[in-house]
Design a protein around this nucleic acid. Structure first.
Length: 453
RNA sequence: GGUAACGUGGCGGAAUGGUUACGCAGAGGAUUGCAAAUCCUUGUAUCCCGGUUCGAUUCCGGGCGUUACCUCCA
């Protein structure tokens, strides 16, 4: 496809034409999970958003020309805390949560990134980077801690539009005695005996909260790459600090040319938080909804917007997919999605606009030829929907039903007997009984079929 | 207090300097024993006040409101 991709760049705050440094190697880094607790629906949003961006980039530049890196942060104070609370070993917690994270990715039908590096497997790189920062006077050691000296980096605050003087004037930040200034942030800190630690020039310790992304993005994507993504909340301080570290260590003008941030998921218009108890874990949806339902729900709002999560949203998505599955037809041979239908995705990943186009393609498919059905299905497949066969979709629904298929068929027999005898009262009663159990009966021609409501 | 995003019909949610979003729900009709499904038809909207303009929901300014970030967080 010839048309250009446009993306909203947080750095600068406007929508820009996307131009990769090297079209034969488009590079994207997305901040992955810190594996300390089960992933929730808020974590799911960037997974799906950047999965779609990955697909768009591959469509534009070619499958083998896009490198997507998503890290796993498996060393962090929250992990230490979480393991303590659950009274399990740190290693057990991180492997368990990483496993669950991968299950969630499969459930949501997200493609595997090109690389999924773990922080703990790249500690030496972080130590090297910290060494460089100290050597260049961008960092200082004090009492086994190493801090980044924010005053040494002129562009600090440029990404998040923050003025350092104002930012820390009130000092709501905990000021450590070891820091020179409150805005400085930790690169390395000492570990207690029972805490995970690695030997370093500053003693046994562990890395700070931001350095892992700087080290791993450099390893896989180089000093400057094309896209860096993550949730809005990472904009400050995480991404600001990443930029400071990387640019000082690498001595260059840009870490990533594009910064993309997805909005939050709220519940009843409030941010999900543990204290409010309004967290929806992804695995909580496994039983009730096919992963595609959750995926479509996540795509129903533009990624930049906040989105309010509700049952109604899921039910609507379920209904839409039910309808769409009626005309699913696996493409045979090469089928192209018309450019004009693809347009919204190229314009800042406008998934709701694209979904609207799918509805139009559906209309055509429902009245048109097999080819139309194939185009429609292809359009769904592009954003990770309707890939699994209809039989599987129906099977999932059957499995969550509380009534067996035999019982249903028996009830239908009973009802049809009643109908033959013109005992419509009884027939309607049976139908309503089934409806209460979520089974909908349809009389078509001479045959009675059933489906899940 | 600082920084940002947002405010579109009953709901969800795009786009746009002048013309149908789209989906769900609703209404009417065809069909049906009644329904369901399907098909056809259909109503309803751009927070407030200024400015720019022939014309603004769209651009600019102000106000009000919502939310987020500034502290670990997708």
């Amino acid at each position: 496809m010839n048309r250009d991709i446009y993306l909203s760049n947080s750095l600068g705050g406007r929508k820009e034409k996307f131009k990769p440094i090297n079209p034969k190697k488009v590079r994207m880094y997305v901040c992955g999970p810190t594996v300390y607790d089960d992933p929730h629906i808020g974590n799911a949003r960037p997974l799906v958003v950047f999965d779609i961006l990955f697909k768009i980039l591959k469509c534009k530049f070619g499958n083998s020309s896009v490198v997507y890196v998503r890290n796993i942060t498996d060393v962090d104070d929250k992990i230490i805390e979480g393991a303590k609370q659950k009274k399990i070993l740190i290693n057990k917690l991180t492997t368990d949560i990483t496993k669950r994270f991968n299950e969630d990715c499969d459930y949501l039908n997200c493609e595997k990134p090109s690389f999924e590096p773990k922080a703990t497997e790249n500690i030496p790189l972080m130590i090297d980077m910290i060494k460089i920062l100290i050597k260049k006077n961008n960092a200082y050691e004090n009492n086994s801690h190493v801090y980044f000296d924010v005053s040494s980096f002129k562009d600090y605050g440029k990404l998040s539009n923050k003025n350092v003087d104002q930012l820390f004037a009130g000092a709501r930040v905990e000021v450590s005695e070891n820091k020179k200034r409150p805005e400085d942030f930790v690169l390395w800190k000492p570990s207690l005996k029972e805490e995970p630690g690695w030997d370093s020039p500053w003693g046994r310790g562990r890395p700070g909260w931001h350095i892992e992304c700087s080290a791993m993005s450099k390893k896989y994507l180089g000093d400057t790459f094309d896209i860096h993504g993550g949730g809005r909340d990472l904009l400050f301080p995480h991404h600001e600090n990443e930029i400071a570290q990387s640019r000082c260590a690498n001595d260059n003008k840009s870490l990533s040319n594009f910064w993309i941030h997805n909005g939050f998921i709220t519940v009843s218009n409030e941010k999900m938080s543990k204290s409010l108890g309004n967290i929806y874990k992804i695995k909580d949806f496994y039983k009730k909804y096919n992963g595609q339902v959750v995926r479509l729900a996540l795509m129903s709002t533009h990624y930049k917007q906040a989105m309010d999560w509700s049952d109604d949203l899921l039910l609507q998505s379920q209904k839409t997919l039910d309808k769409w599955y009626e005309h699913q037809k696996k493409p045979e041979g090469k089928v192209l999605i018309p450019d004009e239908d693809l347009n919204p995705l190229y314009d800042d990943i406008n998934t709701p606009g694209y979904i609207s186009n799918i509805h139009k393609l559906y209309d055509k498919a429902s009245k048109g030829s097999d080819k139309d059905k194939e185009i429609f299905t292809m359009a769904c497949n592009f954003i990770g929907l309707l890939i699994e066969p209809k039989s599987k979709w129906l099977e999932f629904k059957k499995n969550i039903l509380e009534i067996s298929e035999e019982e249903i068929l028996q009830k239908i027999k009973d009802r049809n007997k009643a109908r033959d005898n013109k005992n419509y009262e009884l027939a309607d009663k049976i139908r309503n009984e089934l409806l209460d159990k979520g089974v909908l009966i349809e009389d078509k021609d001479d045959k009675t079929t059933w489906k899940i409501k």
